[in-house]
Nucleic acid binder design. Sequence first.
DNA 1: CGACTTAGAGTCAACTAGACCTTTAATAGG
DNA 2: CCTATTAAAGGTCTAGTTGACTCTAAGTCG
Lengths: 244, 244
Amino acid sequence: MSKTIHQRRPPASLTAAVDLVIFTVRDGQLHVLLIERGNMPYRGEAALPGGFVRDGEALDAAARRELREETGVAGDSLHLEQLHAYGDPGRDPRGRIISIAYLALGPDLPMPRAGTDASAAHWIPVSSILEGQLTLAFDHEKILRDGLERARSQLEHTTIAAAFCKEPFTIADLRQIYEAVWGLPLDPSNFRRKVMKTEGFVMPIGERRLPDVGRPAALFRRGLAETLTPPLTRSGSVDLQGGT
Amino acid sequence: MSKTIHQRRPPASLTAAVDLVIFTVRDGQLHVLLIERGNMPYRGEAALPGGFVRDGEALDAAARRELREETGVAGDSLHLEQLHAYGDPGRDPRGRIISIAYLALGPDLPMPRAGTDASAAHWIPVSSILEGQLTLAFDHEKILRDGLERARSQLEHTTIAAAFCKEPFTIADLRQIYEAVWGLPLDPSNFRRKVMKTEGFVMPIGERRLPDVGRPAALFRRGLAETLTPPLTRSGSVDLQGGT
DNA sequence: CGACTTAGAGTCAACTAGACCTTTAATAGG
DNA sequence: CCTATTAAAGGTCTAGTTGACTCTAAGTCG
């Protein structure tokens, strides 16, 4: 942007898209929302939901709109952050398309309705993609891996794990988020201690949830803090899902 | 990217640019490379170096090319990473231009030659921009602030601080990088202890540098490690430069 | 030589993480 | 009613880390 439009080499004209890596945790497993493509190219294959940025539309707004269109979720409630821009020439056979990827995290969401151009939308276990049982269209597997690494890192330094939980939630609910995203088992007792001593991570609401069996667990809401100081480190180096 | 090109709302056609936040540390102060714009809009004002992405050119390649063009530095030697995509409509009066910002970190570089369309290029202390003594064209101040926060965070978790140092360097050189970027004074003794016990951060070369005054300091090269485990935390909460 | 300056090593108390144990509050079954 | 089972919640203990601080080493300058 430091050069004017009048110069030797004219700037390339291109199209911008947003793609969404939408994660949730369902019964202890990390899932990502994928659509089955209804149009060429890659018709019938699995891909991340997304769409083109419209005239006069901000990138964040395009991401929120696609999120709403593909999941039916009023975007305000979900955590959404820009992940990375992917712009290799040739990444899309239709032409020069730069994709701005976004990462969205949310609680177990209502089953997504099929999007406008997707023939179907499904929650897919992330492990099945990492293990190669399912391949994605375009460079979407790369985007997914980057999104996973970002999510894992965010769990260490911020309180967004709570964004995965439907309120109210228990400490065990929160721990299962960490275990699913990191692919590690955590010590329940030490995890509780860390969370409780981190000011503003969770707020007790003074009620309890009766499980099928075992002692009832106290219920919490999200706290006001956004960052974790000190961070919650994933030290145990087991990696059940083959990350980075 | 999940929709085809045939749909109700046609995708916006736009232009992509890369902008560079190039940091270095000169005599204990963090500096950023700025150009004086030689063309409209914002002619004569300070801005980040950058330029348009060319036809068939990858984003990273465009960033490296601009880096070379604006600084005369063979890009390979500098750390360069994508920062964020900025695409608000109206951020550039010339039309819809999406800018992919990159962060570059390097040792005190040779004085930059003026770029092709910049009338001049200078190293400017970051503090003078943060304190409002100098304003930047477009949304470049926002980009600069994001770049600074990224750099600060990277220093905590990775070994890139060494990328700021011309080899060979002393532990004190490295410490001054941290102090300049974080805007904090650090305890020399404790800093040394942390760095030395982090495997692969620095490698001793067995020589010493004679300073003007004081005991000679051992010299080091960059090590092989990329990540710091555990991280180097900026705990003292003084913030001399008014960052996030 | 002695004052001075910076590098580098060491000390110590406070704190933290990880492993593990104990108690508590519920259910299920005899 | 009593006991086993389950998971929550809380406690203990040790090893390691951090931050503040002191002390020694190796040079220069006058």
